[in-house]
């Protein structure tokens, strides 16, 4: 059924991990085929050899064989552990973004994908990206759970309301690939499809330039002053809220004791639910901005707060500098 007329039976393989994932898939398939065929042949041969014939004596009764049981318990254990080790090793690499990824932000909502690039361009149900460069997505949802799936890259990550999830991939081939929502999200779930457009880096730069609009940081800065955040979060000493410059990526001491790293999740929580983790030395006076600023707006605010970061943390993701360079 795999005639030349028919569509291919394998999805395009277009990311740095897709080849290895296919190889792992092939390995499990080889083992599975071996056992399926062995069991089928074994069943057929036994059924044929010992089919009932006229005048069969009553078969000799056999209780079992402990050595045999140990063998056919032990061998499957070793085989499945080999799947486990390879699968886990690859999974950890799939989940750990390399240094200096290109950061793109995704907001899912019923039933569309809203994409924001650092440099300004926004798109819906399409994601333009350069080939040969790791891309890290920071994603959230405005309503229900969605899932960002790109079969050609062999990656998938659920997109949750109320928190950020991340994923990364690096395309190895230019082209257009399917983007699906794979977590059932309501009536038009099947319509929540899109395209990943992988371009040569220079084409991508040209595409970015043509996109227009203000950068994510600039949009965040505008929102920051619109919402009056600076009233409390100013730079002057003795302000009612903690200063934000240099905050991103540092450890914040909390009033309740303990510390928390000021990452995207913490910044988001502090905007939507300010009383949850209050910085030591400050009162719980900030009102919630939940519902007053969209998920995209929160991402812009975070981008702005990140841009305020001076290079106190050497390990800080270089995306900040990329974005600063581009926003000049």
């Amino acid at each position: 059924m795999n005639g030349s007329q028919l569509p291919p039976l394998l999805p395009p393989s277009a990311s740095t991990i897709s080849g290895e994932l296919d190889l792992l898939f092939a390995y499990i398939t080889a083992v599975s085929l071996f056992f399926t065929v062995a069991i089928a042949i074994g069943l057929g041969v036994l059924a044929f050899l010992y089919r009932r014939k006229a005048g069969d004596p009553i078969p000799k009764q056999i209780h079992g064989n402990t050595a045999l049981e140990l063998v056919w318990t032990g061998i499957p254990v070793l085989i499945v552990l080999s799947f486990f080790f390879w699968g886990t090793d690859l999974f950890f690499r799939m989940r750990t973004p390399p240094a200096d990824p290109l950061e793109i932000f995704v907001v899912g909502k019923q039933w569309m994908w809203k994409i924001q690039h650092q440099e300004g361009p926004r798109e819906i149900n399409e994601l333009h990206m350069p080939v040969g460069q790791p891309v890290k997505l920071t994603m959230t949802s405005e309503d229900v759970i969605h899932s960002f799936s790109v079969p050609a890259f062999r990656v998938k990550q659920d997109v949750l309301p109320g928190r950020y999830t991340t994923m990364w991939f690096e395309a190895t081939k230019t082209g257009t690939y399917h983007l699906f929502c794979t977590e059932y999200c309501g009536t038009e779930h099947a319509g929540m499809m899109g395209r990943i457009i992988v371009m040569e880096p220079n084409e991508y730069q040209a595409w970015l330039g043509g996109g227009g609009g203000e950068s994510l940081t600039a949009a965040g800065e505008r929102l920051f002053s619109q919402l009056g955040c600076a009233t409390c979060h100013g730079d002057q000493a003795g302000a009612r809220g903690p200063a934000l410059a240099g905050l991103y990526g540092t450890d914040v001491q909390l009033g309740t004791g303990g510390a928390v790293t000021a990452d995207e999740a913490y910044l988001r929580e502090s905007i939507t639910e300010p009383a949850a983790k209050v910085v030591a030395g400050y009162d719980v006076i900030m009102p919630t901005f939940l519902g007053q600023v969209s998920e995209e707006g929160i991402l812009q605010l975070i981008a702005y707060i990140r841009s305020l970061g001076t290079t106190t943390e050497p390990s800080e993701p270089a995306a900040t500098t990329v974005e600063e360079a581009d926003s000049e």
Binding site: S32, I39, L43, V80, S147
Partner: peptide, 27 residues
């Protein structure tokens, strides 16, 4: 049962394996 359960059980291993599950999940 023996034939179909064997296939069903073995294909569960693709889904228990972390990396392959990422691609196959919800498909």
């Amino acid at each position: 049962f023996l034939g179909l359960f064997t296939v069903g059980g073995l294909t569960g291993l693709y889904l228990g394996t972390l990396a392959t599950d990422v691609h196959l999940h919800d498909t």
